[in-house]
Structures are given as structure tokens and as C-alpha cells.
Simulated assay, not measured.
Amino acid sequence: MAFRRRNKSYPFFSQEFLIQNHADIVFSLVIFILIGLMFEATAKTAILFIQPQYNVTTLSPEGEVTLYHYGWKDCATILFYFFIAIIFHAIVQEYLLDKVNRRLHLSKSKNTKFNESGQLCVFHLVSSVWSFYILITEGYLLHPSSLWENYPHVHLRYTVTDVLRYEVSTTLPFVFQEELSRQLQYICLYLLHISAAYLLNLSRVGLVLLFLQYVSELGFHVARLFYFTDENHQKMFDLWAVSFVFTRMATLTLMFLAVGFGLARAENQELDLETGNFNTVLIRMTVLLLVCFTQSWLLWKFIRFQLRRWREFRHEQAVRKKASTKQPLRSLKRDSLGHHENGLLKAENGASPRTKKLKSP
């Protein structure tokens, strides 16, 4: 099955061929893994791609509860989620974005940005709703102290560990976008922060930060989609600017509260790989410096963008003001000389000027 209509064919195993047909190739791999579940000889290998392998069953007042932690076998699960995310992006592009593009008739550059924002809107919407659901059900928002108490948080519920694997796997498909160089730095930052929160057992704090980031990014891409449909919709960018600054401040506050003060008061502050305890002064300072550097870099790019936008707005206002001042001067000069009516020059009092008689030769 082909997700897109092919107007041009490329040589096999070329870069253009892989980019054009990556959804079909990945769909075949997913079918191959699912077929492996049907046979006993390959079922144990195929299940590694679908089901998390590191689980622990504990007793609670509600009964038996299954908790999960990470390991090297999670790479297979992340790879399978990566395949599913690519197929999902191809479906959104084929059955939603392409149909909207045919009606809007955008230019090539705007069409690329519209597709990018459309894909990221779906990704951030699903991620923010899923993260918010987990934050409410686990009680992280109502009890902020649970973000750092009883550290290390090695054993987590399936939804918490699964959403982190999902975030890693769904960030990777954006490497197939056309403007890869512009998005590569953001992709690397996402992978670095999510992987650090996952491996250092800071999943609870990382989940709250991801929720804040995805809500802010969702507002930006929704505003850009409305702008492409109608360029008069620019007020939503002002709302996004406020939410962007609030997200940066909330991220820094939460990190200093959880890592700088909460974990600093814990009794066990020795590195222990077996128990998953990474609560040391060096690791805490490294995490805080990384987050501070990232947030400062994002704020610096945001300020540069706003200043460039402000200069462009002032330039447009100056051009309009200059054009408006020239218009009365031209009309004044025309009125002083008179005006034309029915092909004849009329004076200010409405009388026609006298024509000069020509002498005969």
C-alpha cells in the first residue's frame, strides 16, 4: 500500500528514494514483526518490540500492581514505537494536510511550513493530553513534593514509562522533514533532555517539564496554522509569546525546586548504580546547568525573533507613513493647476482657459 502518489521515481537505495518511500518501508517492517508473533519460534523475539520486558509485581491496598523500570531491551520497544510514529505521520500528511493544502494554494515555502506545523500540532496535542492525564492520575500536580520524595523513582507505572518511550520515538520521525538542518538542533535537545530524565530516574520531573513545553509549542504551531489560512490572524502569536516566557520561568522554577532544593535535602546522596541513585552534587549541578543553558538559549532566540519582528513592523509603518505624506502633495499640485474634465483642462473656478490664436503664416 502506498501512502502517497508518486510523480517521480528515484533509483533504489538512494536518499531521495528512502525519503519518498520511508512510510511504505516502515509499514512492511511492522507487518513483518506482527507476523513474527504468530509463530512460536519467533514469538519470543517479536514480543521484545511490543511489550516492555522489565516489570516487577508488588502488593498494594488496591491489590497486585505491576511496575516497570528501564533496561537495554527497551531499545527494541522504542524502535517499534518509532515505526508506528512514522506510519502515523504519513497518515496525517496524506489524509489531512495534503487535502487542506489543495484548498489553500500556498507557495512552496509556506506549504513546507504548513506541513511542519500540522505534523507538530498533532504530535504536541497527543503528547500534552497524554501527559496531563498521567499528571492528574498519578497526583503529581496536586502533590508537587512527590516529584522529589522517595527518590530514586526506579519503578514506575506503565503509563509513565510508556510515555517517555513514546516521546523519544515520536521525536525521531521529524528527521524525514525537508528542512532537517533547521530542526536538527531542536531534535537533539529533545532527545538529550528526555533521555537524561529517563536514565537518571527523574521521570516525574521530566514528565511535568514535557507537559509545559508541549503546551507552549502547541500554541505556537496552532497560531502559525491560523496565520497561513488568513494573514490577519496575528494576535495568537502574542498569546504564544506570553505562554513561551511563562513556560521558561516555570521550567527554571520547577527545576530549582525539585533538583536544587528537594533532592539536596535527601538523606542518601551517594552514587549507586544498582539502586539507580544518581543524587550527587555533581550530577545535580550538571542537570541544573544543562536546563539553565537550554532555557537561556531559547529565550535568546525568542528575543532576537521578537526584535526582528518589531523592526520589520516599524519599517512597514515608516513606508506607509511616507506613502501617505506623498499623496496629499500630488493632489495639491493637481488642484493648483486645475483639473481635467471631458478631456479639457478646467481652471479652479470651473472656466475653460482661453485658447491662443495662431497667426497665419
Rank of each mutant, 00 (worst) to 15 (best):
R284F: 01
L202K: 02
I50M: 10
E267T: 13
N7L: 08
F80I: 02
R304F: 08
L192K: 00
Q183I: 08
R354K: 14
F88S: 01
E312L: 07
L142K: 05
R102G: 02
K108C: 01
F174Q: 01
R309A: 08
S336F: 10
I136Y: 07
R248I: 12
L332C: 10
T253C: 09
V205D: 02
I303C: 02
A85Y: 01
L59D: 10
K359H: 09
K108A: 10
P144W: 04
L141T: 03
R314L: 12
A23E: 05
L344Y: 14
H89A: 04
N101Q: 10
L344H: 14
R311E: 09
V26I: 15
Y214D: 15
P328Y: 12
I91M: 03
L207N: 09
R354Y: 06
S336K: 12
Y190F: 08
M285Q: 08
V92I: 15
A258Q: 03
Y214T: 14
A351M: 11
S107C: 05
K8F: 06
H89T: 08
H143S: 04
S128A: 10
A264H: 10
Q20K: 11
T275V: 10
L29I: 15
I33K: 05
K8I: 08
W148Y: 15
T253P: 00
L218G: 09
K326I: 13
I35D: 05
L96N: 00
F27A: 14
M1Y: 03
R165E: 06
